[in-house]
């Protein structure tokens, strides 16, 4: 290849890359990613399964054999009970409001899809995990993902057999929230992780006159839109610090999300679809 041709090839490649990066429509980009993930998925699933079996084998050797399956069943039960408790708490609060206002509010029932976490994000740029179930199991985008500890995040980039979960500590994850027991609303968004790897989130746009205290519990308000399913009353975390917004119109708070993301093996996606059995 002579020098002139080489220059032309480099220019063509650079042009193509610029088109892919800046002009490629989201639909095409998603299809491309789906194809790549489809190629990697069997190996990824196999490696994740192998890792899980190894971890269970180590547990069995330590004398707590069968703990993995038992833990999974108990976690599922715990999440069900917590969801039930949240619904009852909300129902109680609703009842008080309804008695006062003589109105009835219908609360949408939801079901949960248990999913295995197959892998984490490849680059570390995004706080996300990949689940081993997707559109075929009834999962859609912007559905809440919970664990026994509380809200984990929301679904995004759903393919037929797998989906990505944007964790609550990712800056792109925004959830409408409120303080439990108070009529104080705000928007929780991720703030990454600290140097110890603990997730951080912030609650913004809180009424400047609202009285919020360190240790107050933050829960979902159920107002999150974007066409997703976000039940109200799901535990997010606790307030650890409060501050006035620079504009003086609002106050902000730092929230410590409770879901221990680094230890997640499986999670539950809130769905409208009928419930299914544990894998």
């Amino acid at each position: 290849m002579n020098f002139r041709n080489k220059k032309l090839v480099y220019a063509a490649v650079a042009g193509l890359l610029l088109i892919v990066v800046f002009v490629l429509p989201a639909v095409l980009s998603r299809k491309g990613k789906g194809a790549v993930r489809g190629i990697v998925e069997p190996a990824e699933r196999g490696t994740a399964g192998l890792g899980r079996r190894l971890s269970e084998a180590v547990s069995a050797i330590r004398g707590i054999g069968g703990a993995g399956e038992e833990k999974r069943d108990l976690s599922h039960e715990l999440v069900r009970l917590q969801a039930e408790l949240n619904k009852l708490r909300e129902a109680e609060a609703d009842n008080v409001r309804l008695r006062r206002a003589f109105k009835f509010q219908h609360q949408t029932p939801f079901s949960m899809i248990p999913c295995d976490v197959t892998s984490r994000n490849i680059s570390g740029w995004w706080n996300s995990v990949r689940l081993g179930k997707g559109g075929a199991a009834g999962i859609e985008e912007n559905h809440a993902v919970i664990s026994p500890d509380g809200l984990v995040g929301k679904t995004t980039e759903v393919s037929t057999r797998f989906c990505e979960v944007l964790l609550i500590c990712d800056p792109a994850c925004r959830v409408s929230a409120r303080i439990r027991g108070k009529e104080v609303f705000g928007l929780v968004r991720g703030a990454g992780t600290n140097l110890k790897g603990q997730p951080i989130a912030r609650m913004d746009f809180i009424d400047k006159d609202a009285k919020i205290l360190v240790g107050d519990e933050v829960i979902t308000s159920g107002l999150s839109g974007e066409g997703g399913v976000f039940p109200k009353g799901v535990h997010i975390g606790y307030i650890v610090q409060t501050e006035k917004d620079r504009s003086g119109l609002y106050q902000n708070a730092q929230v410590a999300p409770s879901a221990t993301v680094s230890l997640l093996d499986y999670v539950f996606v809130i769905s409208d679809a009928p419930e299914e059995e544990l894998p």
Binding site: L24, S29, G32, V36, V40, W126, E164
Partner: peptide
């Protein structure tokens, strides 16, 4: 680059430009 960006969230780009 294809594997890196394909398995990552967001659009194609960081590895498709950086690796070449």
């Amino acid at each position: 680059a294809l594997l890196h960006d394909g398995l990552d969230l967001g659009g194609f780009g960081p590895a498709l430009v950086g690796f070449p």
